[in-house]
């Protein structure tokens, strides 16, 4: 992996990102509108490298690993590309077209979040700094 020491690092960073995003009223409302169970599958970077967010029913839960319920949407990519994506340095449409991101299920909910990606990226930068991982920030 280009950005991560091991498979635990990206999940730690991404869960911290969602914890911070949930504290932002605008993003929290946006995530609730997604109303889906989404599994972010980065297992190509390690067997335990994944997490999920559950935005169903007006709540927001997130945890490491694969969800017990069948996800509405699975996004499979590498942990490095996930880092680029949350940093707003990866065009998601281009990545899907070039099979860097594989999508299974309905992506309509995520479309609602797409306009917020810049804000998510800004929060992600702060999260990385707070974790002492400023060196991972993509310039």
């Amino acid at each position: 992996m280009e950005f991560w020491k091991d498979e635990t690092e990206p999940i730690k960073a991404f869960l911290a990102l969602f914890e911070a995003a949930a504290a932002d009223p605008e993003l929290f409302e946006g995530l609730k509108k997604v109303n889906q169970l989404i599994w972010f599958d980065y297992t190509e970077s390690g067997p335990n490298c994944s997490f999920y967010i559950d935005c169903r029913g007006g709540e927001l839960k997130y945890s490491a690993g694969k969800p017990a319920d069948t996800p509405d949407l699975v996004m499979s990519l590498s942990a490095d590309d996930a880092h680029r994506s949350w940093s707003d340095k990866l065009n998601p449409v281009m990545a899907i077209t070039r099979k860097k991101i594989r999508v299974k299920g309905s992506a309509t909910g995520l479309l609602k979040l797409a306009p917020k990606l810049k804000k998510v990226a800004a929060i992600y930068m702060k999260v990385l700094k707070d974790l002492g991982w400023e060196d991972k920030i993509i310039k």
């Binding site: 999508v103 309905s106 992506a107 479309l111």
Partner: peptide, 21 residues
């Protein structure tokens, strides 16, 4: 395909929101 899925669910205006931004 992802795009087909989105078009099926919400029609050709599925990504109007993205276009607005």
């Amino acid at each position: 395909a992802v795009a087909s899925n989105v078009l099926h669910e919400n029609g050709t205006a599925a990504n109007l929101m993205g276009g607005v931004y």
